[in-house]
């Protein structure tokens, strides 16, 4: 105890990751205590979230192309979006339930523990069953990578993991910023869902099927386009939406970093505005 008091502690990020690991670990252990029920819920999650892709398959049983994109190409979009979203949701999905804790004042108890609050909120009730979505997305992505007609280059190959990580960070930022908003409006979870779940559904379809204004909003205001539309256009050799400049696909990590920084700022502002409850 004295060591922590006297010495300057490890950086906050390391502290946060450590706390996250400890709390998530506890929830995972408790989930795995009922192994059969865990396997069932993961499978259920996998099937349920897979329905989105079934919808796409059904559409392609009627048409050959969607907005000019073939099935493997749309599957590529789908895989990138759902894998990134699944990862972000696994890591930060619990932040969405912050409003309830703020309203009933149980958020107080997180503030008296020696760990960064965001890590505690994000790891709370860590739900390993959410793995289903990411696994399902990754499977579709795997198939799409084999099925698309692409001249692979090193840059294109490298862009895939970079995009996945960037996409996860962009969605994660959305979860965190949306959670921070619940410090002000405790019932804002619905609004947040519209952006996160709505966003990932939107991104499962090519930009060419949407109106220009929507695409503009999804590129410049809420930069979800960098989760898959822009990098996928580069990989597939298609024109960028909105005629973005040539290097746009490689800006994804930059966009993700800016999103992460903004989300951090919004979170801190939200946390500062927290004023507990009267009892």
């Amino acid at each position: 105890m004295r060591e922590v008091f006297g010495a300057r502690g490890p950086s906050r990020v390391a502290e946060g990751l450590r706390a996250y690991r400890l709390i998530a670990g506890m929830w995972i252990r408790s989930t795995l205590a009922y192994r059969a029920s865990f396997v069932l819920t993961v499978c259920g999650n996998l099937l349920l979230t897979g329905l989105d892709f079934v919808a796409i398959l059904l559409m392609f049983s009627q048409v050959d192309a969607l907005g000019g994109w073939t099935l493997p190409e749309v599957a590529f979009l789908y895989g990138l979006s759902v894998t990134a979203f699944g990862t972000a949701q696994l890591a930060f999905g619990s932040v969405a339930s912050l409003g309830g804790r703020v309203r009933d004042g149980s958020f107080d108890t997180l503030l008296v523990r020696p760990a960064p609050v965001l890590a505690q909120v994000a790891a709370d009730r860590f739900a390993l069953r959410r793995l289903g979505r990411g696994v399902q997305g990754a499977a579709v992505l795997g198939w799409a990578l084999v099925a698309v007609d692409v001249d692979w280059t090193v840059a294109k190959a490298l862009l895939i993991p970079v995009t996945l990580v960037s996409g996860a960070v962009i969605f994660g930022s959305l979860f965190v910023a949306g959670g921070a908003f619940q410090f002000l409006a405790q019932d804002a979870a619905e609004v947040q869902n519209a952006f996160t779940y709505g966003g990932t559904t939107l991104l499962q379809y090519p930009p060419t099927v949407f109106g220009r204004d929507l695409v503009r909003g999804v590129t410049f205001v809420l930069p979800l386009a960098f989760v898959n539309w822009v990098p996928a256009a580069y990989v597939l050799g298609r024109p960028y939406p909105l005629g973005l400049p040539a290097g746009a696909a490689f800006a994804a990590p930059l966009v993700a970093a800016v999103c992460g920084a903004l989300a951090g700022t919004v979170w801190r502002a939200g946390l500062r505005s927290y004023r507990s409850t009267g009892s």
């Binding site: 105890m1 922590v4 008091f5 502290e15 020696p114 760990a115």
Partner: peptide, 10 residues
């Protein structure tokens, strides 16, 4: 807050 948390119980 987190530094103090090591020294207090609530």
């Amino acid at each position: 807050r987190t530094r103090l948390a090591h020294h207090m119980g609530v």
